[in-house]
Amino acid sequence: MQSNRLGWILLAPTLVILFFFGVLPFIYVVYVSFHQWNPFAANPEMIFNGADNFRRIVFDAEFLNSVGVTVAFVFFAVLSELIVGYFLAQAFMKDFPGKAFFRTIHTLPLIMAPIIVGSVWKLMTTPSIGIIPHYLDEWFGITMNIGTSAPAAFATIVIMDVWHWTPLVTLTLIAALVSLPADPFEQAQIDGANSRQIFWHITLPMIMPAVVATVFIRLMDALRTVDEVWMLTGGGPGSATRFVGVHIFKEVFPKTNYGYGSTISVIVLYLTIVACWLLYVTMLAPRNTKED
């Protein structure tokens, strides 16, 4: 009883902060999402409009396009980060000359603010001036212009995200790989299992919780990507990289469409929860059931 009370006392500051800075704003956003509210409309007051905003969102081509682009981005970026991150983690598990140096270098992108990453990549990809289009043209005769080519802009953003966040995946997977017991691997080798069989039947199942946790983190991050894209393409060319985060930003800030913008935010939160739940159900739940 005594320790319960002490526990709540110690937790209280966190819970209070969480309530005021997390729960309360969320409730307010939900409340606003049921209103028509633009402070620069002829009537700047909040007007309750029931589920109109939610009805509108279903037919909003710009929003649906931004969801589609975001889903594609999340798929390519997170999958690439997992694959590259796993190979890098395996590489860093082995000893080689300059390992400490390369491991340090490889984590540097992690400490850069997304807005800086966007700026740096903008400089590197500016048509005809940036180092990437320049050498692509000089060495391979390829013209790269992210201001006119939607695929080039999209691919550049995926690559930028992979460059920025793969180190996080690598570090998480290194931690998981280091903690694996040696016995199952030795037994598998004695039984004659090849490396592919060892990966699919021993390594992957054993690091699955770490993989899922990493995917959760990256999925949620990728779904709300704004800064880097804002700096690099501004959502263009056209709407090719207008991810849902950028779409919400444009709706809420420049357009001051607070009501509808809040509705989009609520829906995106809902979609994120559903995506994470699906991930959990398909990747972790079967394993837990088996263990039970």
Binding site: F40, K250, T256
Partner: peptide, 11 residues
């Protein structure tokens, strides 16, 4: 309504 019209037609 400067920004509101601008952001609507810009895409």
């Amino acid at each position: 309504f400067h920004a509101q019209v601008r952001e609507t037609v810009a895409p």
